[in-house]
């Protein structure tokens, strides 16, 4: 009897621990936790200094509000060989899609580099040309090195150096409202679908 009671307590404790770690069995990874957290809290973009690909200096928060558009943000570094390529081609496709539907007044793409040491505005400009980015639709920017930490923290981006001198990072699309609030984080291949939702909702 005592053993049964103790076992039940142990199982309950175990279930409780797993439930709290998985936010009630909703998630198993910290990436999912990050997405849920952002969706629930909807934090505002930090007003950090950003330099765009033509050398223009901005304050992130002010910039978003001044543009008064939905922003789709991804994080990249120009030396990237793997995941950012995928992000790049996803954004190229989104850019085409936005232009075709005439959405450039409502949606803007922003690729932010987390490697400001290397990615000066000139490097970003070359990268933008290389990807045939249309500046009306797709901007590139890098934060001041001192602001990088707070920026990554707000967006929940973890960057770790890998063995080949590059970085690995959690790649996703972050949807920012014209008010500057982070709305949601989605897989990097989900752009089209969310664009549809955006059009339908208005």
């Amino acid at each position: 009897m005592k053993t049964l009671l103790a076992s039940v307590i142990v199982v309950l404790l175990g279930v409780w621990a797993v439930a709290s770690m998985s936010e009630g069995f909703e998630l198993l990874t910290s990436e999912q936790a990050r997405r849920l957290d952002i969706q629930r809290r909807q934090p505002v973009v930090p007003n950090v200094r950003l330099t765009d690909q033509s050398g223009g200096a901005h304050r992130f928060g002010d910039w978003v509000q001044a543009q008064n558009k939905f922003l789709i943000v991804d994080f990249i570094y120009t030396n990237c060989q793997s995941l950012c390529r995928a992000l790049g081609s996803e954004f190229q496709q989104l850019q085409r899609n936005i232009v075709e539907r005439g959405l450039q007044n409502r949606v803007h793409l922003l690729s932010i580099s987390f490697d400001p040491e290397h990615d000066s505005y000139a490097v970003l400009g070359q990268y933008a040309n290389h990807l045939q980015a249309n500046p009306e639709v797709w901007s590139f920017a890098a934060p001041a090195s001192a602001d990088l930490e707070i920026l990554l923290q707000t967006f929940g981006v973890t960057v770790i150096p890998d063995q080949t001198g590059g970085f690995q990072h959690n790649a996703a699309l972050v949807w920012v409202a014209p008010s500057g609030k982070l709305l949601r984080v989605t897989d990097y291949a989900s752009g089209e679908q969310l664009l549809d939702e955006l059009v339908k909702s208005n």
């Binding site: 199982v11 404790l13 175990g14 797993v18 770690m21 998985s22 998630l27 198993l28 990874t29 910290s30």
Partner: peptide, 12 residues
Amino acid sequence: SMILMFWMIPRA
């Protein structure tokens, strides 16, 4: 086994 299971959750 409960403890081992818990520590296999990637988020943990």
